[in-house]
Nucleic acid binder design. Structure first.
Length: 954
RNA sequence: ACCCUGGUGGCGGAACAGGUAGACGCGCAGGACUUAAAAUCCUGUCUGCAGAAAUGCGGGUACGGGUUCGAUUCCCGUCUGGGGUACCA
């Protein structure tokens, strides 16, 4: 009986489907385990080998946990709202719902071939009304909540209104932008005034702000969707523009998002990225009064108040409110010129050039401690949105300030003595201050609290904690997203009644943007006549809470019953790419904390453990075509019969190259080829499937496209060698590898194992199909433990020998440990060793083979299930229980001895070896002792190993 | 510019807590079986020197230093591949 993987895999996939083998219940006496993948955006290009990497890893882990006796939730779904579908609709006139549906069915078909253990009965789709009904519902909760800083949690906005009615604004002080009012004043305010104040508190709020406006997409993008001033998708230029926007007040959660990192198992790199993004810094705000008008002050934010006497100039952002007041008549013209120059520069230019630019306002402020006059400058390196939009510049301690001072010839005050060399700034905190009045001689770190205290005493400033994180833009002027359940009346946003949810996305004729930067919904009369909000929610809305919906996907009463979320609780293992480090992961963590605050769920961190799978890169191949100049006739010929040169020739000087291949050119293009000139060599991506290693399959290339049919090749050693480069996997680079093709050729089990065998899951690596044969061979070897080509079935019921049990138990231990710690590549190696060793021992004992199948089921579910049944087992191997290794079969070989030296026991020896001063001596003693122990014979080799036993080779 | 990651044979990678570097697989070379091929199996495969051979001696984990009895592993500096970023005071 042969290993016919195609038939086996098809059979079991159908059987599992028919039996609902992966359906999981919310009720079980077993412990629970929630294994989650970041759900995919169903793009039109289908799956490439990079996509399933994380899914395979999580699937192995989920199956492993199931065998270990856990009730495992392992769901899958689709993040179906998004720009590409809408862009596709604009280009092709196909409704996003239709193309998305098509894409989803393609994805599903490809996924199903790989044999995942997803519980598809829990599938979610963020674009389905019965899903986004609850996205809208959660939005309404956010809209109807505010963040009570005293209690450090979200509270219903109704409580805030009550407080305003009773006590006015006093009870909620601490909000900078809020005007204060009494309860009587509050009651006298118009509804609009009241609502405007409440809007400053709502966790989902509407405001005006400078946003990234992308004309090409007709929409606003979040910071993390803009790359170097161009849209991430489409590459259209992005400019700043003020628009009405919805925001999530994620800034209120900054501290808790930071603290929460301590109790989750994310990688250090991931935690660092998130905490850098949140960017908590401790510093002070300091007021500087204008030298000409002491009632006017310029407030700065600094993290180094200790350097106050080193301030040589001030810098304000070009957008700063005080600029018109600061600018003197003599400087007016140059300031205006500078500001218009800054506006003309795109983000991209500002990023790329790192030019030092700036302009003097003509004004001076006074250092509050010594009344020194300090000039005020404007520069684009100070950002309006961070801190107060103004800084005190200390050139001897800050690199940017120093460069600015140098560029504009501003004299530098040195307050750190020899730590400053006059050539570059030194940001040390460990210098003793000089030229610093009452701080002279004090260590900088110690001076910080001193200055803060003084600032408060003199009422010229106060310590302040600042965050880099900004509120998240939460609206898009787009069609393909969740509509906001908001109705506008007289400029007031009213929430829709919960019973009117879902507010369904209407069908539109055109996906073109509406007027004045509004979304396509603004073109719809039935929509605008109801005064509904015309923005839609961004892509991350639906993905911020989907992990909860899987727990209770069909509930029509609530987004997820408390019973279900209490049972499944946190995601035990979350797998996905690092690209979502600061977007999705922060937003979903915030939503989780918010839902926790409202007591709708019982935990405030969604993911207990996060594993970031590495990116699988493509390995691109190139061919090199020579470009010529000559007569028209020759140039046409050169296009019809292109000449490609092998990789080793591409860097030759053109005249030399031309001389070398002139015969070939003449025979290809005729004698006219003598009068042409090679002017360049162009590099073209070639489909990786035509290349074996680096050698091009010339015939395959010729039949690729008609234009290449008559190609001519200049070879090296009889071969055409392609160039290669590691790049992102992409259809346009012809370096994608389709998993379905590999599954057809080698089977899903081989494909799964090969993806894992490629290297650590977390590591990025280029794809290379070479080597998959070895994995396939391994599965065939496994098969041969059960079936012999000539003899047929070979397994027996005999008792296993000691040697066989040793192999088995070593494998159990290794696979158990490796699978548990996500080291799937080494687990696969261990499996190969085990199967090889059992093959050598000619082991066909049923008892051993059964255990083997259980161990390998997570990796190769189909073949294991088949063999499990062929052995005569009734139930599915899915429900087997994971074997436990027995230490008694793992005793190390007799070459490893525990040794007593110099009459000391091993335990004592441990102590001696750790005392480093005596180590040399002790080791010599050890050698002697070993000799003695061997009755005077010298050992061949003595190796000291880490468990402090001595390994002696006799 | 800054932050995060990596750099080990011809290749992917292993060495889990500082203890015999190169497991496992690919590729390559040789051999067995076969009319032949496929499939399968066996042997060898970091490197220099010595040896008929088993084997022995030395070098070696990007480069240069350091800590240690001992370093692929820890520290400092340099070079380099990949990813990220919001000039954050």
């Amino acid at each position: 009986m042969e290993y016919s993987f195609n038939a086996i895999e098809k059979k079991w996939q159908e059987k599992w489907k028919a039996d609902h083998a992966y359906q999981v219940s919310n009720e079980s006496t077993k412990p629970k385990c929630y294994v989650l993948d970041m759900f995919p955006y169903p793009s039109g290009t289908g799956l490439h080998v990079g996509h399933p990497l994380g899914y395979i890893a999580s699937d192995i882990f989920a199956r492993y946990k199931r065998l270990k006796g856990f009730n495992v939730l392992h769901p899958m779904g689709y993040d179906a709202f998004g720009l590409p579908a809408e862009q596709y609709a604009i280009d092709h006139g196909i409704h996003p719902a239709k193309s998305t549906k098509q894409n989803i069915s393609n994805f599903r078909e490809q996924l199903d071939r790989i044999g995942f253990s997803f519980d598809w009965s829990r599938e979610v789709n963020t674009a389905e009304p019965n899903y986004y009904k609850w996205t809208q519902w959660i939005f309404l909760q956010l809209f109807n909540s505010w963040y009570d800083r005293q209690k450090a949690r979200a509270m219903p906005i109704s409580e805030l209104i009550e407080a305003f009615e009773k006590e006015g604004s006093i009870s909620v002080s601490g909000y900078r932008s809020m005007t204060s009012f009494t309860s009587d004043e509050w009651k006298k305010y118009s509804e609009k005034q009241q609502q405007n104040i409440l809007m400053e508190f709502r966790l989902a709020y509407c405001g005006f702000g400078e946003v990234n406006w992308c004309e090409g997409l007709g929409t606003v993008l979040a910071n993390d969707e803009v790359i170097n001033g161009f849209s991430e998708r489409g590459g259209f230029p992005v400019v700043k523009r003020k628009l009405r926007q919805w925001y999530l007040r994620i800034t209120e959660y900054a501290d808790r998002l930071l603290e929460g990192l301590e109790k989750v198992a994310f990688s250090d790199a991931m935690k660092e990225m998130q905490s850098n993004w949140i960017g908590k810094s401790f510093g002070a705000e300091i007021d500087f009064v204008l030298s000409t008008d002491k009632t006017k002050k310029l407030r700065v934010y600094t993290t180094r108040p200790d350097t106050i006497f080193g301030v040589d100039f001030m810098v304000v952002a070009p957008e700063h409110d005080l600029i018109s007041e600061l600018t003197t008549t003599t400087e007016k013209k140059s300031v205006e010129e500078y500001i218009s120059y800054v506006k003309s520069r795109s983000e991209r230019e500002r990023m790329a050039e790192k030019k030092i630019t700036g302009c003097f306002t003509g004004s001076y402020v006074l250092n509050p401690f010594n009344q020194r006059q300090i000039p005020v400058w404007i520069s684009e390196y100070v950002l309006a949105g961070y801190g107060t939009g103004a800084i005190m510049a200390v050139p001897c301690g800050d690199e940017r300030d120093f460069k600015f001072a140098q560029h504009f010839n501003i004299p530098v005050t040195n307050i750190i003595g020899s730590h400053f060399n006059g050539k570059e700034a030194n940001s040390t905190k460990d210098a003793f201050l000089e030229n610093s009045d009452f701080l002279n001689g004090i260590l900088m770190r110690d001076a910080i609290p001193l200055v803060n205290k003084k600032l408060e005493e003199l009422k010229i400033g106060n310590p302040r904690v600042n965050y880099k994180i900004r509120d998240a833009a939460f609206s898009r002027q787009r069609y393909w997203g969740e509509p906001f359940p908001i109705i506008w009346k007289n400029g007031i946003a009213y929430p829709l009644d919960e019973k009117d949810l879902p507010l369904e996305l209407p069908k539109v004729e055109s996906y073109k943007p509406g007027p004045d930067g509004e979304g396509p919904l603004a073109n719809l009369k039935e929509w605008t006549s109801r005064h509904l909000e015309t923005n839609t929610m961004p892509g991350y809305a639906g993905s911020s809470w989907y992990y909860l919906r899987y727990m209770d996907p069909h509930n029509n009463e609530t987004f997820c019953s408390r019973q279900a979320s209490d049972y499944w609780n946190q995601v035990d293992l979350y797998i996905g790419g690092t690209e979502h480090a600061v977007g999705h992961l922060l937003y979903s963590r915030m939503w989780c904390k918010f839902l926790y605050d409202l007591d709708l769920i019982g935990f405030d961190e969604p993911y207990k453990k996060l594993v970031n799978q590495g990116m699988i890169q493509g390995s691109s191949r190139f061919v090199y075509r020579i470009e010529i100049s000559g007569t028209n006739e020759m140039e046409v010929l050169a296009k019809q019969k292109p000449v490609f040169i092998s990789d080793g020739l591409k860097n030759k000087p053109f005249p030399e190259l031309q001389k070398e291949i002139s015969d070939l050119l003449v025979s290809t293009w005729g004698s006219g080829a003598n009068n042409i000139e090679i002017i360049s060599v162009s590099r073209l991506h070639v489909d990786v499937s035509f290349v074996d290693g680096l050698e091009l399959d010339i015939n395959a290339f010729k039949s690729w496209r008609p234009v290449y049919a008559q190609s001519v090749f200049v070879l090296e050693n009889g071969k055409y060698i392609c160039g290669s480069e590691v790049e992102k996997m992409s259809k346009t680079k012809f370096n994608t590898v389709n998993p379905t093709e590999l599954v057809e050729k080698y089977g899903a089990d081989t494909f799964r194992i090969y993806e894992m065998f490629l290297g650590p899951v977390e590591q990025s690596k280029p794809w290379d199909t070479k080597g998959i044969e070895g994995v396939h061979r391994f599965l065939r070897k496994l098969w041969r433990l059960f079936f012999d080509e000539t003899k047929g079935r070979v397994w027996t019921n005999e008792k296993a020998t000691e040697a066989e049990l040793k192999v088995l138990h070593r494998a159990i231990k290794k696979l158990d440990e490796d699978t548990d710690r996500f080291s799937f590549n080494t687990a696969v190696s261990a499996s190969m060793i085990m199967v090889n060793e059992l093959g050598e021992l000619k082991t066909h004992k049923k008892g051993i083979l059964e255990k083997l199948l259980i161990l390998l089921t997570p990796y190769a579910p189909h073949i294991c299930e088949e063999l499990w049944h062929l052995l005569g087992n009734e139930g599915s191997v899915l429900d087997a229980s994971y074997p436990i290794h027995d230490e008694k079969f793992l005793v190390e070989s007799s070459k490893l001895y525990p040794v007593a030296i110099n009459g000391k026991t091993r335990a004592e020896l441990n102590i001696s070896l750790e005392a480093s001063q005596q180590q040399v001596e002790e080791l010599v003693l050890a050698d002697e002792a070993v000799k003695k122990w061997l009755n005077g014979n010298s050992p061949k080799k003595v190796i000291y190993v880490k468990n402090k036993m001595i390994n002696i080779v006799v």
